[in-house]
């Protein structure tokens, strides 16, 4: 059951008013332009025990993605495909407002949006993760851990997931006897097969203006928010509108244009970090 949120942080009225005032002048309370991302930093492989991992800092928002690859059975109706599962946890240490407990609707929504954006364009080549068709495949777990909450978890989570998936390596198979696959978890073999990269661009609407990469206070004040997933070929691979107000059809056109434009920046940040990691080997 979904409930209207009752525990939102109180944004001082003065701040709320000035947010709307400065937006009219093309600037935000932290000095950014309306279509500007906060400073992005990506750290690769912070958790060597995981098959792949990455930490992304988007301003103060910090998200860690850990990829674990395990042996398992395929879904009954997809015997020739590996399995991808995306989960997210908004752990209590990330924000004074978070309570311990199972993932709430926000964490679940975030996980499912990121999942769809990875799955639909087949970013991970699930068909290349089959060991014994119908019996044994690789299961890729992508767990997204929110560590510090200052808005726009989706974009940070997507970047962290993508980075982690890019550097993830499959465990080494040391032997196959009939149905029995023996794996040496301490050893890594080839990289996780990927087809494409995906980023998401989230945009909040305040007072009729569109703001890219909303900070927590902007998210609370915003009338509505929308996340667009874009892949390397500039196709739209996911959309999720959230928030308690609407977008006009005209605003949707603008949002898509904006998302495609900003996706180029995000890809270039991601690719720069991945390239540097490769060359430093």
């Amino acid at each position: 059951m979904s409930l209207t949120p009752t525990y939102l942080p109180v944004i001082p009225r003065l701040k709320r008013d000035s947010m709307i005032q400065v937006v009219k002048k093309g600037v935000r309370i932290d000095g950014r332009k309306l279509d500007e991302y906060r400073r992005i930093s990506i750290e690769l492989n912070p958790i060597p025990k995981a098959e792949g991992s990455a930490t992304v800092k988007l301003g103060n928002t910090m998200v860690m993605a850990g990829v674990k690859i395990e042996l398992g059975e395929p879904y009954r109706d997809r015997p020739k495909e590996g399995v991808l599962q995306v989960h997210a946890e908004f752990v209590p240490l990330a924000s004074p407002g978070f309570e311990p407990g199972p993932p709430d609707e926000n964490a679940i929504e975030t996980a499912r949006v990121i999942d769809r954006c990875i799955r639909e364009p087949k970013a991970v080549s699930l068909d290349k993760l089959v060991i014994i068709p119908g019996r044994r495949v690789w299961i890729v777990f992508n767990d997204i851990y929110l560590l510090d909450y200052d808005g726009n978890v989706v974009d940070a989570g997507m970047l962290a997931s993508m980075a982690a998936l890019h550097i993830a390596r499959l465990p080494r198979i040391t032997g196959i006897e009939g149905d029995n696959v023996v794996v040496d978890k301490g050893c890594r073999s080839e990289p996780l097969p990927l087809n494409t990269s995906v980023v998401t661009v989230s945009i909040a609407k305040i007072g009729g203006y569109l703001l890219v990469d909303p900070v927590l206070e902007e998210e609370v004040v915003a009338d509505a928010k929308i996340t667009i997933g874009i892949d390397r070929d500039e196709r739209i691979v996911g959309i999720q509108k959230t928030g308690m107000s609407g977008f006009t059809l005209g605003e949707l056109d603008e949002v898509v244009e904006l998302a495609i434009r900003k996706s180029r920046e995000l890809f270039s940040v991601l690719e720069k970090v991945l390239k540097e990691a490769n060359t430093s080997k």
């Binding site: 769809r116 639909e120 500039e234 739209i236 999720q240 509108k241 609407g246 977008f247 006009t248 059809l249």
Partner: peptide, 17 residues
């Protein structure tokens, strides 16, 4: 003229959208 729910599960080009 307000869109109050919008999701996409799949892949569309900008034009198809």
């Amino acid at each position: 003229n307000q869109v109050v729910l919008l999701q996409l599960n799949g892949v569309l080009s900008r034009d198809e959208f």
